[in-house]
Design a protein around this nucleic acid. Structure first.
Lengths: 346, 346
DNA sequence: CTGAAAGCGCTAACAG
DNA sequence: CTGTTAGCGCTTTCAG
């Protein structure tokens, strides 16, 4: 027989100790004297002992695993956030278990349930586009499991939240457009259900107001987060006859969709239409002209989220004062809003 | 008290049943009569019962979790593979736990150990750049845990393997260059340790040989998988004075690095130098001219890998005959090798 | 069809 | 400093 795993009992039997002594030694408990510890450690190594985390977690009523739920992992932004989370979790001896909601609440609810079943030490989540109520998150409160929202947060739940400075980023982007002489600026907005969309939209309207420009809801086109939404939005605007001088898109994919549509209609960027995105997608710098955009820091965002949740895991009293972390954004001005003498990145 | 989780015992107490009966009912065991089952199901729902997967796994000596180790998740290719894996795993009621090796064996070994400790039902791995021996994978054989390599495989370990058709893809790419009249073709190769690099290189040399062209090792530049490796390689070639008519890069990032360097030197693509990559990175179509490349199917690759491992999990006897799945690639001809009347994607 | 007994591998609390 | 006892929540086996 072979697939038998080595346990503390095996080590104990060999050394003529009790298995609890071995357990303590392995965890470097002060009770045990150095000599014994060394003995235990070396034989553990010799036998290629792998502690059974499941048994430990069952006993401790909590695992060493952090759950992560994202709309999809097939996405620059989220995969980079996850990378940041994994990095921090790894340092603190935790694993991450990843699920995708695919933008549906139903799936998100199942994901949550699976996380609970797995006794995750904490959950990091960016909610789906279709998530309206946050009722399925109440169980974390009940079970006292730390919960942290990142990027797309759920406003009716009290929990720590880590987001990019969507409002400020949008504000600066639009102000930049205004400063460069554009007064009629359309906004291709994201789903109203998502906090991110609302904040960016607010940044847009506030920048207009601050500059004494009228806010015309006709210039706000509601849509999704995808490239096709951007194309569609620009088509819609173009059909009306009167074009804006600039477009501020809720994110880079939407801006890229608009970009293609603008080119298709034979218009020039930025001469006819200036264009700004959000997110600093890697593609943006490769467009011609390259896209002015707002840089977020997804890796940072992931790291901060992970740090907060680990803090709460180590120190449960932290859970009572939820933190709201806002990660700074930076406007990156490129040729889609301002002709410089530099060409596209080549 | 609140964070108390509901257990089968709680349900049993309420219904005046034994907890084992409840357990059986919950799993739809034929022993239990319909009436009882329904009773159990409804009260479970009422109490918001979440089964404890850890206890179940401990008892069954195997979890419902599939481990995934990749060099990094912050990468189009790998994040798409993972997305495919997650999708299939989800359908079969499994979770995935993701680790990054960051291209170091040391970390990979730790990751493996953590997977074993977590009693993963199986492991999917794409090995790190620095992994030479596969000794740390022997434990899976010993413990009879299914192991599947994808993309970057470990040749000295007997296990199922899922790879893109690197050889054929490279062969076709180089043949395409030859057909279009290029006879001196440089190859910017990846690390020799990695199977992917070796296969693509073999496809390159075989295509030359098949067409009665000489294989000159001087045209093969060894490097890594990154953009900077591509820049460096082209610089090296350029220094020699004699330029090749075409470059076949081991992957798209390397091709993109070469692309920048070529442009920087004032050379034209494809007139002076034709350029081919591998992987159909999203960026490739946005270059100017867009890059001819070999399309892999990372999502498919992930799905197939997951299907194989789930097959082996369900049916352990499958483990004795390891499968080798080769996913077809497709050459995508764009303007970096062939001037058409179409411009860049815009 | 339902129940009792036993144990997965680990750790906390307490006793010696 | 080491050992004993007990149990985390679940499932398997076997008895009723």
């Amino acid at each position: 027989m072979n697939n038998q795993q080595i346990t503390v009992k095996d080590i104990a039997r060999i050394l003529n100790l009790h298995h609890t002594t071995v357990s303590k030694a392995l965890r470097n408990h002060p009770d045990i004297r150095q000599e014994t510890k060394e003995l235990v450690f070396t034989t553990a190594k010799e036998l290629d002992y792998h502690p059974n985390s499941l048994a430990k977690s069952l006993r401790n009523r909590r695992s060493q695993t952090i759950g992560v739920i994202v709309p999809t992992i097939k996405n620059d932004f989220f995969s980079t956030v996850i990378s940041g989370i994994e990095e921090v979790a790894y340092r603190e001896d935790h694993n991450i278990i990843v699920c995708q909601s695919h933008e549906t609440v139903e799936r998100e609810i199942l994901n949550v349930s699976s996380m609970v079943s797995n006794l995750v030490a904490g959950l990091l989540i960016s909610v789906s586009q279709t998530t309206r109520s946050g009722d399925h998150f109440r169980i974390f409160e009940k079970r006292k499991i730390p919960l942290v929202f990142f990027d797309r947060v759920c406003e009716d739940i009290t929990a720590s939240k880590v987001v990019a400075d969507d409002y400020q980023g949008a504000f600066e982007a639009v102000e930049h457009l205004i400063q460069s002489g554009r007064w009629t600026i359309a906004h291709f907005s994201g789903p109203e259900t998502i906090s991110v969309s609302r904040h960016r939209r607010k940044g847009y309207t506030d920048a207009l107001l601050r500059n004494n420009l009228p806010v015309d809801d006709g210039w706000i086109i509601q849509g999704g987060f995808l490239e096709e939404d951007g194309s569609r939005a620009f088509q819609q605007v173009a059909l009306r006859g009167k074009l804006p001088e600039a477009v501020f898109a809720v994110n880079d994919p939407v801006a890229i969709g608009a970009y293609h549509q603008i080119k298709r209609l034979g218009l020039r960027i930025p001469e006819d239409i200036a264009l700004v995105g959000f997110g600093d997608n890697i593609l943006s710098s490769y467009l011609n002209p390259p896209l002015t955009t707002v840089k977020q820091s997804p890796y940072e965002l992931g790291k901060i989220s992970a740090e907060i949740i680990l803090e709460q895991i180590k120190n449960p009293s932290e859970m009572t004062n939820p933190r709201e972390e806002i990660v700074k954004t930076h406007l990156i001005v490129r040729d889609s809003t301002q002709k410089t003498n530099k060409g596209a990145v080549e």
